[in-house]
Nucleic acid binder design. Structure first.
Lengths: 217, 217
DNA sequence: GAGCCCGTATGACTCAAATCATATGGAAGA
DNA sequence: TCTTCCATATGATTTGAGTCATACGGGCTC
């Protein structure tokens, strides 16, 4: 049993760094840019949501722990991405906790300023909706996988998903999957041994390539 | 194996019938109110999203089928509730299909009118965000359950969730769970036999009450 | 009223992933 | 450099949900 998930590391994904809300607007609406260390907890499951969060630098993981210490990763957020809006706008307690995976900087803005910002900026508001909708898409996808499919299918789906986010030309190029076996396990509801065995089998069957220990697809 | 999920029945949940968008606004923005029969497919997985949908009367189920014919229910929508917005606002194909569970009436509105409506009505726009956020909450909850917990915990969580939606005073009153064993199975990623056995065991352990075959909690 | 479908129920059996134990290698830090 | 921690790896064993077969009762339809 892993006692705690806090010593994990997620490498930075390349890709779009476009911010959900641009810095100038954040500043204009009383957001503070706060420096954070590695493994710093930003909020905890069950607490009330009071602020809007947006990553400026570093990475943030949202996760839940069950009583056995098993973790499930609800999402990973990279620079430019916002997180923790659902409890803020839906008026319910945080369903998961958030922790930094690297030192970095985080924007924080009180709810009232956030709502005013949305009121004044329709395009940003629509952008937020797009973000929420894509997050629902991701959750639907993972839920479908976890509820009905075997380990190989789950891993293939998540690897393809991240490849499509990373690669400029997903159909032509190969990318290195930027996750450890443990991270893949935490995102797919599998155990690390199952991920290791399944990945090995997939390599043997020619469904992906292993370079050293790195997964290429 | 169940060959098809179309002959299922979800009883109407009592509770808030408040519309996400009021009828007057729907009409003002070119929405059409369409009569639908039972078991009518409204859209299918993989198709492009072009319209906003809102239930006026009846019930709608969103579901995915895996190649073995196993179903997973992504959501059930009652009068007043909207559905299918994520692919519309997030610009991706439908991740699931939608089917009516009863004859009824459905509002349909083209995307361009929907976006204009949001632009003109900030309060509705915020209401939509609340709806999307609560849907994310539901999915996070189910995902946490399906990824890490045993059948009893999964069933308890979903029964509690629906009780909190139905009951006026969830802590004081008992409600009858308005789902069949098969429906509970489809929502929790379990098999119907597992649901039956687990529910029986929970009754024996005094965790819920069976009245005839109806589950009371 | 006969037949059919569906929901509930139960026992026997299977099997794949979880669990447990252990080993190796590499990166980071003292 | 030595140590520690983590990631990867692999074999043995367990276990609990899935699968399959079967049964029964109720409601709907022909």
């Amino acid at each position: 049993m892993r006692p705690s998930p806090v010593f994990q590391y997620f490498p930075i994904l390349p890709g779009k760094r476009k911010r959900v809300i641009p810095s100038s607007l954040l500043q204009a609406y009383n957001a503070r840019l706060v420096k954070v260390g590695k493994d710093q907890i930003l909020f905890e499951e069950g607490r009330q949501a009071l602020e809007y969060f947006q990553v400026e630098e570093g990475k943030v993981k949202m996760y839940v722990l069950n009583p056995d210490g098993q973790e499930f990763t609800q999402g990973i957020f990279s620079p430019g991405e916002s997180f923790g809006e659902p409890p803020l706008l839906g008026d319910f307690p945080y369903p998961s906790s958030a922790i930094t995976l690297e030192a970095g900087k985080i924007w924080r803005m009180p709810k009232s300023d956030f709502v005013q910002l949305l009121r004044d900026n329709f395009e940003i508001h629509m952008k937020l909706d797009q973000v929420l909708c894509r997050r629902l898409q991701y959750k639907s996808m993972i839920l479908t996988e976890v509820s009905s499919y075997d380990p190989e299918h789950r891993l293939m789906t998540i690897i393809r998903y991240f490849k499509s986010k990373i690669a400029k030309h997903p159909s032509r190029e190969q990318v290195i999957v930027p996750f450890t076996r443990q991270q893949l396990a935490d995102m797919t509801g599998l155990r690390v041994e199952t991920v290791i065995r399944t990945i090995k089998k997939m390599e043997k069957d020619g469904k992906l390539v292993l370079e050293g220990h790195k997964i290429k697809y």
